[in-house]
């Protein structure tokens, strides 16, 4: 069997096994409601942060406005499921949220993506704040009070499946024609243009794709938490997603998973410290960055295909990044 099929099969088996493992642990009571909640939060953060990593790590565009797209997804779901409060309504709202987020990403991206580095960061942050202020002042979104009693239309299996789907989507996107083009732009925009890559077009593609996944994360957040308010989607939310990306390693999807899990567990473990929680969290953040400046995993990526090929002892056309 070809390595690529073997690798795909192993990933599928792992995903299914993970699902059953969590399911069993819930049945036997090892995972209680508290831990389940933690796992779901981690899952939603993975969905949001992998999309951001596509923008920051792969296309090299420093976006600080991810929470804005998350808000669009969350509010689309909250508003639509008020009218159609069943699973169908949820999936409809998910699609609507994605489409709106992508359109808004195009509108924001075309003028701002020509900016570089920190200028882009501050412009996207501003754009996300504008989205938030608008939501804060609209009637349909119930203003600053936010929306509550959103029907609980997602449980952990929903989130689990979406984690798998969005990750698959982003990893496959990053390892294809599009992915090579956006990484070329990240490495050297002038050289990329000189070999026929239109930077505006491809940066926008990555930005829009990231926005779409952020909307998915927002929709899931809305139906899982069941209460949302504009203040949930401020600069601090964008920053906490950025923290996951950088802590895991910019450009490493595996790293994003690891960082989301580490931070999720840390957050839960620190609950018992009460007011001291955020102080410890902040210290942990500073220490990890000072001692591990390129993030927990750097650019490392787990690759089953790579493992198979190394074991088989033949050099193949591996598209995996090994340890840098």
């Amino acid at each position: 069997m070809q390595a690529k099929w073997k690798a795909a099969l192993i990933w599928l088996v792992l995903a299914v096994a993970g699902f059953y493992l969590i399911n069993e642990l819930i049945v036997v009571g090892v995972i209680n409601a508290f831990i389940e909640n933690m796992l779901v939060t981690i899952g939603i953060n993975i969905i949001l942060a992998t999309g951001l990593n596509l923008i920051i790590g792969f296309s090299g565009q420093f976006s600080l406005g991810h929470a804005g797209f998350m808000a669009i997804g969350a509010y689309a779901t909250a508003i639509i499921t008020q009218q159609i409060s069943n699973t169908l309504g949820f999936y409809l709202s998910l699609g609507v949220g994605m489409v709106i987020a992508m359109l808004v990403a195009v509108v924001i991206g075309i003028p701002t993506l020509r900016l570089r580095g920190d200028y882009l960061a501050i412009a996207t942050m501003g754009a996300a704040e504008i989205i938030r202020v608008v939501i804060n002042n609209l009637k349909i979104t119930n203003g600053a009070a936010g929306m509550y009693n959103i029907p609980a239309l997602a449980n952990w299996p929903t989130v689990y499946v979406f984690v798998c789907l969005t990750t698959l989507m982003i990893v496959n996107f990053a390892r294809s024609r599009a992915g090579r083009a956006i990484q070329a732009i990240r490495e050297d925009e002038i050289a990329a243009e000189a070999v026929g890559i239109n930077p505006t077009k491809w940066k926008l593609a990555a930005f829009v794709m990231g926005a779409a996944t952020a909307a998915i994360g927002g929709s899931l957040h809305a139906v899982y938490i069941q209460t949302i308010a504009p203040s949930d989607f401020g600069i601090m939310q964008s920053i906490s997603l950025l923290i996951i990306v950088v802590l895991g390693g910019v450009g490493s999807i595996t790293g994003t998973f690891v960082a989301a899990i580490v931070l999720g567990v840390l957050d839960t473990a620190l609950q018992q410290f009460g007011a001291l929680r955020m102080v410890i969290y902040a210290l942990a953040l500073i220490l990890i960055m000072v001692f591990k400046p390129s993030g927990l995993l750097g650019r490392y990526e787990v690759s089953i295909k790579g493992l198979l090929e190394r074991k088989g002892g033949h050099h193949g056309t591996t598209d995996s990044h090994e340890v840098e």
């Binding site: 923290i243 950088v246 007011a275 001291l276 210290l283 390129s294």
Partner: peptide, 23 residues
């Protein structure tokens, strides 16, 4: 180090000062 690392550290320092004072 990469500039983004220093940025995250700065955010960490900000959290530390805010929450340290609150605490």
């Amino acid at each position: 180090s990469p500039r983004i690392t220093a940025l995250i550290t700065a955010i960490g320092v900000s959290y530390f000062l805010e929450n340290g004072m609150s605490f």
